[in-house]
Each structure stands twice: as C-alpha cells, then as structure tokens.
C-alpha cells in the first residue's frame, strides 16, 4: 500500500482523559474502516486528521501536506472532504444552495464550474430530483446524503466520514454504502463506524481503536481470522465464553476459548472485533 495519509505518535489529552494515545497509522487509496466502542477516540482521531483540533504530540501528513504550518494546514483542508458525526445544515437553504455554499468555502470560485460540480455530486448521491427542495423538508436519510455531497464536492483526495450510517434505516444504509464504495474509488476514505457490517461490506482495511489506542490494523479478513476456531454453538450459554447470545435458531453462539469437541462455527468480522476488544479487557485486568 502506498500511503496517502500517514500519522505518527499522535496523542491528545482532554483534561484528565487521554483521547489519543500514541496513534500511528498509514492509509492508502480505498475505504478504511475505523471501528471501536463509544469513547474509543475515533471521532477525536478524525477531528485531528481533519485539522479541526491539533494533536498535543505527534505528526501527520495528508497527500504530502504537513498541517503543522499555516500553509500546510490550508493545503490539507483543500484536499479534505469531511462528514461530521452530527452534520449541521442551513435548514432554509435548498440542497443545492447548501452544497454550493460549502463549495464556495472550498474555494470553488468559478460559478459555472462550481454549479456543474454541485449538480454532479448531488446526482452522485441521488438527490438531483430534490436539489431545489429546502433541507428542512428532506428526510433524515436525504439530509445525510446532502452532507455526503457536501463532503464530496470539489473532489477531495481524502474523505473523512464520521459514523455516516447512524440513524439510517436498512434501505438507506445500503444506499449509503453504495455511495461510500463509489467514493472510495481513487481516493482515500476513512470511515468511522459502530457497524461491523459497514466495514465487512465496504472496507479493504480496518483499524480497531479502544481507549485512544489502535488495537488492530489490517484487512477485514485478517480481523475475522482472529476469531477462527474461537466461535462455537451450544444449546446453553457456555459459561467459559467471553461473549454469548441466543441466535434466531434458538442455539447459543459463543465467542472465546471453546471447550474440547465444541461445534465450531464460521467466524465473522464482528467476532474478530469482539475478541480484539476483549483481549484489551483482559490486558487491563491482568
């Protein structure tokens, strides 16, 4: 992988909380998923990479630009598309006007070219038909797509998406995954999510964060592989399992260290994720 985004030793403390603890990573073209529980530091990492907050320590570059200088920070911002966790909207603007407004703030100054670009991204997210509609009259899913269009406008080389599928219904989520997959073609996308399904379906690489640190970095298959031989089925919840739940069939799906002769199941990415987090819990306990 040839990295477009490289970070080294990023640390950031908010009061007594170490939100980022010596985070280093390298991102290349395609969609990278950022998984982790609430409070893991995902949003903080995204905000640091988006130059919204500076890190206390460490450094990073985006497409070769160093945000440590004023000019470099501006270059990073020019190369950036950002979809915040809870995007705000100018409710009285139409979808077109809002994306046009963001396009201006991204220094797309030629009116004709800018409007062409705004129409392009709105078409890409499937909002061409409602582009003249006021945002306050759009559904939640449509608004989220407006936010994605705003992130995509100007064709940024680095796209940062903070939990973009939260609050969407399954159909909207599927539609959104399509859009993110398309967005990942030819650019670097960092996608923060709680949904392991998102990662499984979209990402060619995955990073697992917890307590401000990176616990795993690799492909989704490698994360899934972590659970190989550690998922089994039983009629009752196995007390030795680190996690277990009754499935739709009535049987229990257990994750952990299986007993001898257990009925092993095919692992999923979620199993690998759970075991990765559980390993950290075990470390802390030890």
């Amino acid at each position: 992988m040839i990295p477009t985004v490289s970070a080294s030793g990023l640390s950031l403390r908010f009061g007594g909380t170490l939100a980022l603890d010596d985070v280093s990573l390298r991102l290349g073209e395609g969609v990278t998923g950022l998984l982790g529980p609430n409070g893991a530091g995902k949003t903080t990492l995204l905000r640091v990479l988006a130059t919204a907050v500076p890190a206390d320590r460490g450094s990073f570059t985006v497409l070769g630009h160093d945000p440590g200088t004023t000019a470099g920070r501006l270059d990073v911002r020019r190369a950036l598309g950002y979809l915040p966790q809870t995007p705000g909207f100018h409710q009285d603007f139409s979808a077109f006007e809002f994306v046009d407004y963001v396009a201006i703030l991204k220094e797309l100054t030629d009116r004709t070219a800018r409007h062409r670009e705004v129409r392009r991204v709105l078409e890409a997210v499937g909002l061409s038909d409602v582009r003249g509609k006021r945002i306050k009259r759009l559904s939640g899913g449509m608004r989220q797509r407006v936010a994605l269009a705003a992130a995509l406008v100007g064709d940024p080389g680095f796209l940062v998406l903070d939990e973009p599928t939260v609050g969407l219904d399954p159909e909207q989520r599927m539609r959104f995954r399509e859009l993110i997959a398309q967005a990942g073609e030819g650019r670097t996308v960092l996608l923060s999510t709680h949904q392991t399904e998102d990662v499984a379906m979209l990402c060619h690489r995955v990073i697992v964060m917890d307590a401000g640190r990176i616990r795993f970095e690799g492909t989704p298959a490698e994360l899934t592989e972590r659970a190989a031989g550690r998922v089994w089925s039983s009629t009752e919840r196995d007390p030795s399992a680190r996690a277990g739940w009754r499935t739709g069939t009535g049987a229990f799906r257990n994750v952990g260290d299986p007993p001898e002769g257990a009925d092993l199941l095919e692992p999923t990415l979620e199993d690998g994720y759970l075991l990765t987090l559980d390993a950290r819990t075990a470390e802390v306990a030890a």
Partner: peptide, 26 residues
C-alpha cells in the same frame, strides 16, 4: 513532520478544477 516513504502527494479524482490556492483564489 514525518511522512511515510512513497507517499502519494496528489489528490486523485478530478471532477472539478482544483482551486489555485493563491491569494487570488482566496
């Protein structure tokens, strides 16, 4: 600041003419 080796330094897609980035464009 450090950067990884063989780092890509060009934005890949070009749907629109990128801003010149100078004083004039601002």
């Amino acid at each position: 600041m450090s950067a990884g080796t063989d780092t890509i330094t060009q934005a890949a897609p070009t749907g629109v003419e990128p801003p010149a980035g100078g004083r004039e464009s601002r």
